[in-house]
Design a protein around this nucleic acid. Sequence first.
DNA 1: CGCTGTGTTGAATGCCGTCAACGTCGGTGG
DNA 2: CCACCGACGTTGACGGCATTCAACACAGCG
Lengths: 232, 232
Amino acid sequence: MSLNNSLILGLPAFAELSGEDADAILASARSSRFPKNAEVFAQDEEAHHFFLLLSGHIRVVRTMPEGEQVIARYINEGELFGIAVAMGRTNYPASAVAAVDCVVLTWQNKAWHDLQSRVPGFGANVYQTIGTRLQDTQSRVMEMSTRQVEQRIAGAVMRLVQQSGRKTEEGVEIDFPISRQDIAEMTGTTLHTVSRLMSAWEEDGIVRSGRQKVSVTDPHTLMLIAENRRTK
Amino acid sequence: MSLNNSLILGLPAFAELSGEDADAILASARSSRFPKNAEVFAQDEEAHHFFLLLSGHIRVVRTMPEGEQVIARYINEGELFGIAVAMGRTNYPASAVAAVDCVVLTWQNKAWHDLQSRVPGFGANVYQTIGTRLQDTQSRVMEMSTRQVEQRIAGAVMRLVQQSGRKTEEGVEIDFPISRQDIAEMTGTTLHTVSRLMSAWEEDGIVRSGRQKVSVTDPHTLMLIAENRRTK
DNA sequence: CGCTGTGTTGAATGCCGTCAACGTCGGTGG
DNA sequence: CCACCGACGTTGACGGCATTCAACACAGCG
């Protein structure tokens, strides 16, 4: 047996699943390793598969005709991604790139129906996931419409440490490599502005950051900045 | 019989539906009229119903804690809306307001399961709708990240006339009342900037507009502006 | 040891938001 | 009918935030 069912039994998408059903589901999946910066799938490519991230972090990126890139989201361990099939799409609307070395489960689209019928609550869970992503994206539109750059960057960094933070001796660190350019592509600004603001925050002891690395040492103040309630 | 099944038989969400099934589905629905500016449901309110717009236009609005508003989308005739139940949400994430006098079909959430099992392709159609809305929202994020205000406004106006346009003798007119403020809330800018730019476009013979009314007389040039390819 | 990717910082420009004032339309009530 | 009032629209002046342009520093890697 190649894959152990304990890989998926703890995940929300496969809650309430029996051990033997889990084995059957894993039998139809393929496990693969993607080294850092490898592309799991490419934007506009025909969507024949869907994926589950077992370990690592995936960056989902949309590229415009003129070449500008926007980071749609980061995928965390245990999340489904590339689920074009669930939305009735035939092509991937974005690319998925490994932010670090990753392990990924891959299914063919034709296994979708089997998963829906075999796993209780799978469909509901998936559609809730999509719904959550829609709400997150709407919130991002609101943030870009109503907040200025410093608040948006602070909010983005807060969200990253909340959902992918790792405690260290100097605060909470985003546990994958992330550049100024990446943060700029998440917030609709430039790497220059990100660099300037993060330098200022470092002066004030709010963050510690370096090459592709960001730690938050004073989450409280950073949250105040995100809400534009900081008392200078 | 209070509702005629021809009301819904032509709609994409109810494709491949038999006449008697349609009758049964309508029997579980309630039809109501909402005058202009009436609220169909309110943001954060518990979601007990979902809706289908039979006629009119609905504006979906999200309000921030500080009071700023953002228009998430406009709903056209024949579209489902307020489908929190399909995303596993218990509250509405936005408000829905009638942009003109509207006729709306309302179901209780408990009718959701019945519709899914009785109508072939209903589930797939709904999830495709949600998927499309997610992609649209992502595109909006990209647009706000990479284009400047004039291009964004041009793009928004083009989309409005494409999906809700009505031919008149002086071009294609958006067939519901829309103010400068509304357009600003769709594009993340201010009513002042919208007014200035639309005045300039009117000078150039690209649009004709007045109180809560916008007609596009030169769609080609407006599209060029949206793509930042206009030769001044 | 050079090269590429990443990060920092200064200076100048300009887009567009803010503030302000005024004009106009349409509905409403006396 | 007309006067009033609120919603909507226009336009000018000003200024600030953030981009743009530029130059340099530093790290990791082959």
